[in-house]
C-alpha cells in the first residue's frame, strides 16, 4: 500500500470528504484554503479561495456539482465544484462548525458555534439548484440547540432527510425533526466526552460516532440504540465505516498541545482498523506525524484518506490482500473476490 501524500495546506486539516464516485477528495484546513484532489493520482484540480479564517467543515453534494463550506470567518459559502467559483455567502454572528447535505441535495444544514452570547444554532437552508447564485438568506428552519442542552458539534441528515442526527459537546446524541424543529429523541449517556465526528454507514441504517472519551460507537439510526463500541487508548477525532469489508477506521491521537513532548510512537498517530462486529483491533496504518483529525473512506470501499494535525492528507488505496483478508479465519464468511 503506497500512500499518496497531499501537501496543499499549511496548517492542520479539519475535514476531508470524498465525493459520491470517490474520484475527488475535498480537504479543508485551518489555513484559509479548500482544496480538491483527484484521488487516483493525487493531482490537485483546484482551490476554492475566498474564506478569511479557519475552514472548519466541508461537504459535497451527491452529484459533485456544489460544495458547501463553513468557516471561522463567520460565513458559510456555496461553491461550484467544476470552476471553483463562489456562488453564495451566508453570514452569521459566530463560526460555522459543521455543514452537511440532505440525501436529495435539496437542503443543507449548518451548525454555528455557541460564543459571545450567541446560542448554538442549527439552521436548515433550502438550495436552489437551477439558479445557484440566487439562494435564500433565510433558513427554512432554525433550531436553537442551546435550549435543549449542551451545544452541538457534529450533525448529519438521516436517510430520507426528515430527521437530523446531532452529536454534542457533552457526549449526547439527539434527533431533530427537520420540519417542526423539535427534539424527538435523545440519549445522554452515549459518550462521556465531546463527540468529534459522525458518519453514516453505506446503507444508512446505522452511524458511527467518535469521541474524546477514547471510544467510537455504532448506533442505530431509527432507535439510537448502541450497537457496538470500540475502546481505544487515545482520544478519537474521527471514525468511518468501510464499505465492502467489516471494518471501521478510527483516527485520533494525543492532544495537539502535548505532541511536542512525545515521540511518534507514544502519540499513537496511526489510523486504527477495528473489526466492526467482533470489536477487535485488526490493523494499524502509521505515517502521520501528528494526531489524525479527520478520516474519510472511498464510497466504494477501495481507499481511505486521513488528514492530520501535521497538515498532510494521505490517500491509501487498499491492496488486493485487504479485500481477501479474514483476520479471524473460519469465524468469518468466505470472501468472494
Amino acid at each position: 500500500m503506497k500512500p499518496i501524500i497531499l501537501q496543499g495546506h499549511e496548517r492542520s486539516l479539519t475535514q476531508i470528504v470524498f465525493n459520491a464516485e470517490g474520484d475527488l477528495l475535498f480537504s479543508a484546513s485551518k489555513d484559509v484554503g479548500v482544496n480538491v484532489w483527484f484521488t487516483s493520482n493525487g493531482e490537485r484540480l483546484g482551490t476554492f479561495n475566498g474564506h478569511n479564517g479557519t475552514v472548519w467543515t466541508v461537504a459535497v453534494d451527491s452529484q459533485s456539482r456544489y460544495l458547501v463550506t463553513g468557516s471561522a470567518d463567520n460565513t458559510m459559502r456555496l461553491w461550484d465544484v467544476q470552476t471553483g467559483k463562489c456562488l453564495k455567502v451566508w453570514e452569521f454572528l459566530t463560526a460555522v462548525k459543521r455543514v452537511a447535505w440532505s440525501e436529495d441535495d435539496s437542503m443543507i444544514l449548518s451548525i454555528t458555534e455557541q460564543r459571545q452570547g450567541q446560542q448554538s444554532m442549527l439552521r436548515i437552508y433550502s438550495i436552489n439548484r437551477e439558479d445557484p447564485t440566487n439562494q435564500s438568506n433565510t433558513p427554512i428552519n432554525e433550531i436553537n440547540i442551546s435550549t435543549y442542552g449542551p451545544k452541538a458539534t457534529v450533525a448529519l441528515f438521516a436517510p430520507l432527510s426528515d430527521v437530523i442526527i446531532t452529536g454534542h459537546e457533552s457526549g449526547k446524541i439527539a434527533k431533530y425533526d427537520v420540519k417542526t424543529g423539535e427534539e424527538i429523541q435523545r440519549t445522554n449517556e452515549s459518550h462521556f466526552g465531546e463527540i468529534t465526528d459522525i458518519q453514516l454507514s453505506p446503507d444508512g441504517t446505522y452511524f458511527i460516532t467518535s469521541s474524546k472519551d477514547k471510544t467510537a460507537k455504532l448506533f442505530d439510526v431509527e432507535t439510537l440504540d448502541e450497537m457496538k463500541g470500540y475502546v481505544t487508548e487515545t482520544p478519537l477525532n474521527s471514525a468511518c465505516i468501510a464499505p465492502l469489508r467489516p471494518y471501521v477506521i478510527l483516527g485520533g491521537g494525543q492532544e495537539a498541545m502535548n505532541v511536542t513532548t512525545t515521540g511518534q510512537r507514544a502519540g499513537k498517530f496511526e489510523a486504527r482498523f477495528w473489526h466492526k462486529l467482533f470489536e477487535e483491533e485488526v490493523g494499524r496504518v502509521r505515517g502521520h506525524f501528528g494526531p489524525i483529525n479527520t478520516l474519510a473512506v472511498h464510497p466504494q470501499g477501495k481507499a481511505y484518506a486521513s488528514g492530520a494535525e501535521d497538515g498532510f492528507v494521505r490517500v491509501h488505496w487498499f491492496d488486493e490482500s485487504y479485500f481477501r483478508s479474514r483476520p479471524f479465519g473460519d469465524l468469518e464468511p468466505e470472501v468472494e473476490v
Binding site: M1, K2, P3, I4, I5, L6, Q7, G8, W37, N41, G42, E43, R44, Y247, F273, E280, E281, V282, G283, R284, V285, R286, G287, R314, H316, F318, D319, S321, Y322, S325, P327, F328
Partner: peptide
C-alpha cells in the same frame, strides 16, 4: 510541490 508518493506501507489485516 503538492503531491508525493509515500513509501510502501505493509498493511496486513490481522488481529492486533
Amino acid at each position: 510541490k503538492t503531491t508525493i508518493v509515500g513509501e510502501n506501507i505493509h498493511f496486513k489485516v490481522a488481529p492486533v
